[in-house]
């Protein structure tokens, strides 16, 4: 077993885990943060994207022990419970950026990371290039791209990062 201490969505977390535990398993099964999904489990689909120290990573391809001492942010950490949605979440709702919703948490975490890296004014081309690690099997991406462009612009006017 291995002892780990990390920050998840702003809260300190301590746990004693099997070193084999993947970060995504730890988040879902130990912390019950089930917003982060396991899709392919082979780092292809991006349903498990979370932020570690502010950078988008695939939580299925990282051991929870490797997050020890780091800061993790999941889809649950974007906006407080009961508070208005994060602008990127709101944009996905407004522009119908999801159908079944399975890929959405990963799409949104990838999109927020993209805005942090490339700013609030994103071309369709940039968004499509940057989404290469996130797969959606329902909508065909058109509305996801629209949502991200709108969410990126909305983030410029929001207090939520």
């Amino acid at each position: 077993m291995a002892k780990i201490s990390l920050i998840v969505n702003g809260n300190p977390v301590n746990a004693n885990i099997d070193p084999r535990t993947l970060l995504v398993q730890f988040l879902r099964e130990n912390l019950r943060l089930t917003g982060t999904h396991v899709g392919c489990d082979t780092s292809q689909c991006g349903a498990c994207v979370v932020h570690v120290d502010g950078k988008a990573v695939k939580a299925c391809t990282m051991l929870a022990v490797m997050a020890d001492g780091h800061e993790v942010r999941t889809i649950e950490g974007l906006a407080a419970d009961g508070a208005p949605l994060h602008p990127m979440q709101e944009a996905f709702r407004e522009h119908h950026g999801l159908q079944c919703g399975f890929c959405t948490p990963g799409m949104i975490m990838t999109a927020v990371d993209l805005v942090h890296r490339k700013g609030n004014d994103l071309s369709d081309h940039t968004i499509r290039e940057e989404l290469e690690g996130n797969l959606c099997r329902c909508t065909g991406y058109q509305n996801i791209v629209l949502s991200i462009a709108a969410g990126a612009r909305a983030m410029a006017k929001s207090d939520l990062a």
């Binding site: 695939k58 990838t110 690690g133």
Partner: peptide
């Protein structure tokens, strides 16, 4: 290489 999340690791 890979995609943005892969490049972060």
């Amino acid at each position: 290489i890979g995609d943005p999340a892969v490049r972060h690791k």
